[in-house]
């Protein structure tokens, strides 16, 4: 069964934030993890672009604070 967008993004977040048991929702934000800093944002964006084969807008990257923003920019 094809993984949902959220599941695929969760794999990325687990790797970048170094937490194999992390469970995210659309509301998961920088406030929920002290490891989600600017470096993590860059790593999350690069990994997401690779995983989904997309180029995210720089404006989104500039303001990325939660998973919901990321999900809304990705194709289904």
């Amino acid at each position: 069964m094809k993984s949902s967008k959220l599941q695929r993004v969760q794999v990325i977040f687990r790797e970048v934030l170094d937490d194999e048991r992390l469970t995210i929702t659309g509301d998961f934000s920088q406030n929920d993890s002290s490891d989600w800093d600017s470096v993590a944002t860059v790593q999350i964006v690069l990994a997401t672009e690779r995983e989904f084969g997309v180029r995210l807008p720089t404006e989104l990257v500039a303001q990325l604070k939660d998973v919901g923003q990321l999900l809304s920019a990705l194709p289904d």
Partner: peptide, 12 residues
């Protein structure tokens, strides 16, 4: 500096 935005701009 907004690091992620600048990084993204540069590689784009």
């Amino acid at each position: 500096m907004n690091g992620p935005a600048v990084f993204h701009f540069s590689i784009d």
